[in-house]
Design a protein around this nucleic acid. Sequence first.
DNA 1: ATATTCCCCTGGAAGC
DNA 2: TGCTTCCAGGGGAATA
Length: 277
Amino acid sequence: MPELPEVETICTALRKVLLGAKITAAEQNGKLRKEHCTEELNAFCKNKKIEKINRRGKYILIEFSDKSGLILHLGMTGAFVVDNDIENCLKHERTSWFLADGRRWRYNDARRFGAVQICEAEMGFDKHPALKNLGIEPLSAGFNGAYLKKITENSRMPIKNFIMNQNKIVGVGNIYASEALFMAGIAPDTVAGKISLQKCNALVKAIKEVLKAAIKAGGSTIKDFHSVNGEEGLFANELKVYGRKDQECYKCKSKIKKIVQAGRASFFCPKCQKPRN
DNA sequence: ATATTCCCCTGGAAGC
DNA sequence: TGCTTCCAGGGGAATA
């Protein structure tokens, strides 16, 4: 579900409601991709104060005032809710944090692909196994055409899979990979190592542009994504190729095609995006 | 090392 | 109205 713009949207929303809050207790309700049992999570979180909330790739980093923290991932269907209902659980509530002011912060995740991990102060976020191998932030200044050219060199991976690889570039998922490649005029199955510096420049520009525009729109709600207050993201209305199989390309009126790459759907315009392999 | 394929899990939409 | 099949914003393990 959530890619960089959706995670960024969630971070902004969480900051508004959680900064400064103190946790009195935590509960874990069943398994996630990564989780801790209630006893461990509760012992770790109890009496900690939420000081900072940041994003690294698709991970949300909750930093406590003692420099320890939580590393949260939303998987495909994860969502947060903050309310005052102490009695009832949501249908797919996996984790709950009870706050000193009486509120309850919940992590709800139907498919359980999300993750709730703890990070000790001595370790620090950067060294945590979940984060230490992550690639460059696409909105950082260091992510430019020359950098992309350098890391794609010698790679025979299809460019769409390459830009979705979190160890190379973080935050780009299935929607924005298709969208950025359309904007840059590059077919998704182009061999990464064959892309020219000029095209790398165009792709970097497209990735930055589409991510920024999506953040501005509050992300893309296809079906599941909702921010903390339940709001939908509006960027789904601006998608040019994702989910538009057999519909007309907005640029050239050709039929948008769908192919499957590494098990994920890729959408592209066969006329505007070249070359094919 | 690198690139697919499969699997984790649940629910909604589409097909019969 | 059912029942079945397919599909989904992710990622990691297993496999070639």
